[in-house]
Computed example of a mutant assay.
Amino acid sequence: MMGTAPVEANTTQTTQKTGPKERATPSFRYAGHEAAMAFADQVAARHGLAPQWVRQHIGQAERVPAVLKLIAPPPSPAAKNWAAYRERFIEPVRVQAGLRFWQAHSDALARAQAEYGVPAELVVGIIGVETLYGRHTGNFRVLDALATLAFDFPTSHPRAAARAEYFQGELAQLLLMSKRHNVPPSQWRGSYAGAMGLPQFMPTSWERFAVDFDGDGKVDLQGSPADAIGSVAHYLKAYGWQSGMPTHYPARFDEATLDLDTLLAPDILPSFSVATLQSKGVRLDEDAQRHVGLLALVQLHNGDPAAGGAPPSYVIGTDNFYTVTRYNWSSYYALAVIELGQTVARERAAQMSKPKPTD
């Protein structure tokens, strides 16, 4: 979704409202914003665009207070809870929608798997978590959302300057996309963070990774499921997906030798060999013991234990698990995507194995 995946993780919104109330009455248009107009002149000079054209479109962008509310962290964030997070996505409505999506687009999914090496179930999982297979792609004008975050990002955020700079880059890319594809900048629709289409790509990712997978001569991540499928697979391949490698293995511990602090220090970045994990108290199954490459111990909290929450869950993540987190920098997101895809795949296999009724 983003120009760089680590930023993408912070702006992907997997459950978003799409009703008319998203567009709150704007305070003003950015034509009256000195910094916005200076930025417009910089973009024009840097990319060889007509200054008046850039000023006109950035000036038409409206500040949307709802975007600023949605981007802000909650005042009292709840403790992370993998079980609750999982229930949002691995549930009957999404699984059945995934089955229908796979049935309708099985050829494109099979072709993407063959071309990029990314399993069809993983693509199905990502599109299902991101937008429920196109049901919730967002209805904000992307021009407004990006301008609001580029020029009015909340200063209370500890990384406000860096985040504002990021969204300025995405705004510039939106204008370049619009020019290249002959689409008025105000016509793009997406999430409050500016992500678009079935896979929720940000403008930079759209330009870097989106592909014309249906061969109609244009890239359409909103109206072409085939383009969305091919683009998700291309994205993951570009970020290092290795065909045939599992995403994770189960984790069990030898409590007497477990060195949890050392194992969790690198977070989700694969950093330990099989031998090192075993020496630090991790018990691996036979498949994991045969793994070639580095691994990570991934911890997922299940609420606050002091408030009655369950103990954390753990998996052993591979380089492919880390690749999934490049789409959204969250181990919770990655495992939800993986498990949704696996659930849909199992349901599909069960349906296909049923005997067909005879006349």
Rank of each mutant, 00 (worst) to 15 (best):
Arg208Gly: 04
Arg208Lys: 13
Phe209Asn: 06
Ile316Lys: 06
Gln113Phe: 03
Ser231Ile: 01
Gly341Leu: 00
Asp107Gly: 01
Gly303Ile: 00
Pro26Tyr: 08
Leu335Phe: 02
Gly244Val: 03
Lys69Gly: 04
Ala265Ile: 07
Phe201Trp: 06
Tyr192Asp: 09
Ala150Pro: 07
Leu295Gly: 14
Leu109Ala: 00
Lys69Cys: 01
Pro270Cys: 11
Gly48Phe: 05
Ser313Met: 10
Pro185Gln: 05
Lys356Pro: 02
Ala35Ser: 14
Thr247Trp: 14
Phe28Val: 06
Gly317Cys: 05
Ala83Trp: 06
Val298Thr: 06
Leu269Met: 10
Trp241Arg: 04
Ala350Leu: 14
Met202Asp: 02
Glu91Gly: 07
Pro185Asn: 12
Gly230Met: 01
Val142Thr: 00
Ala336Glu: 00
Gln96Asp: 12
Asp144Met: 03
Trp188Gln: 10
Thr257Arg: 15
Gly244Asn: 07
Pro266Trp: 11
Glu347Pro: 04
Glu255Arg: 15
Ala24His: 12
Ile229Thr: 01
Ala97Thr: 10
Arg252Val: 04
Tyr116Leu: 07
Asp227Thr: 05
Gln42Val: 01
Val211Leu: 08
Pro199Met: 13
Ala275Asp: 10
Tyr314Gln: 01
Ala150Val: 02
Ala66Thr: 14
Arg283Asp: 13
Phe140Glu: 03
Ala84Leu: 11
Phe151Arg: 02
Pro225Cys: 13
Trp82Asp: 00
Glu286Gly: 08
Glu34His: 15
Pro225Arg: 10
Phe213Asp: 02
Asp267Gly: 08
